[in-house]
């Protein structure tokens, strides 16, 4: 295996295109190094994208927030503005692993690892995030839902890699939240998770709602019916009950070492309600 550390997007693409055998992109390495050690992957080339300036920046313009694919969880958590705009997304990334992991792990890597239980994904879907992809044919931008195809499988074509994640600048009185269930308090993979983004009008009525759940299907799922249940209304027990049921209805989980079908289906509804409540409360507390 050869290790490469290109310093430009162009150089990285060229390495990816010309690599003989299997090439893997390395960002924080907290998944890739584990997979190497466990011999789950045996690539011929490891292409470290951390030395490419575009992957290391956080930039905010009038339309969007762009978080470089190799920005670490710790760096994202320390950024003064992103957390104010999308607290749920930042919290979701912050939940990945220990402090030590946070010093290395990246949102881009979490996304590209394409685990059904990835913490950042439901939050990114709820926030309507996009993936910024560089490749031999230039840059393209696709939704998170379209990017994730199956466990371990993404929409990246040969020669492509993720440069950044883009989040819209949220409308007025919008906030998000992400919650996950793990049996311990830390260091576990999500057994079930839910991310939600809520926009309220001046009367506290919901005008826009997105809800996504993780670890309950091959990829994280957008609960499409959530919008219909929540929009145009106030938060009451009846709507929450409908929401819990709608959430459980989209779940197609498996039994594995981390949880059971019944548990995941039931608790997905619980977490969906809790995430919506938290996002709602945060949106209410905002005057912008």
């Amino acid at each position: 295996m050869d290790y490469h550390a290109p310093e430009s997007i162009h150089a990285a693409i060229s390495l990816l295109v010309n690599a003989e055998g299997d090439a893997r992109v390395l960002a924080g390495g907290t998944d890739v190094l584990v997979q190497l050690r466990e011999e789950m992957i045996e690539p011929n080339h490891l292409i470290d994208i951390k030395n490419i300036a575009e992957t290391r920046n956080i930039s905010i313009c009038a339309k969007e927030v762009r978080v470089g694919a190799a920005v670490t969880g710790a760096e994202l958590g320390e950024h003064p503005k992103v957390k104010a705009l999308w607290p749920g997304v930042v919290e979701a990334v912050g939940l990945i692993g220990s402090h030590q992991i946070q010093s290395r792990a990246t949102m881009g890597g979490n996304l590209c690892n394409a685990s059904p239980a990835a913490d950042s994904v439901p939050a990114l879907i709820a926030a309507d995030g996009k993936v910024v992809i560089a490749g031999p044919n230039g840059e393209r931008k696709i939704s998170i839902e379209d990017f994730l195809i199956a466990p371990g499988k993404t929409a990246l074509a040969i020669g492509e890699f993720v440069v950044a994640l883009a989040l819209p600048i949220p409308p007025t009185r919008t906030a998000d939240a992400y919650l996950r269930f793990i049996p311990r308090t830390e260091m576990d993979i999500a057994v079930v998770s839910a991310g939600s983004a809520i926009t309220l009008d001046e009367d506290g009525k919901c005008t826009h709602a997105r809800l996504a759940v993780g670890a309950v299907a091959p990829t994280a799922r957008l609960v499409k019916s959530a919008s219909g249940i929540l929009v145009d209304g106030l938060l009451d027990d009846d709507r929450l009950e409908q929401l819990a049921q709608a959430t459980s209805a989209v779940c197609e989980p498996i039994d594995d070492k981390r949880g059971t079908v019944a548990f995941r289906t039931q608790v997905a509804g619980v977490l969906a309600c809790r995430a919506v409540k938290l996002a709602w409360q945060r949106a209410m507390e905002r005057d912008i």
């Binding site: 290790y3 550390a5 390395l26 390495g29 907290t30 190094l33 584990v34 050690r37 490891l46 470290d48 951390k50 710790a74 220990s98 402090h99 030590q100 992991i101 010093s103 290395r104």
Partner: peptide
């Protein structure tokens, strides 16, 4: 500690 941050040294390559 790597550049002041705590890391798992098992998850960093020597080459990095």
């Amino acid at each position: 500690l790597m550049n002041g941050r705590a890391i798992n040294s098992c998850l960093v390559l020597g080459a990095e």
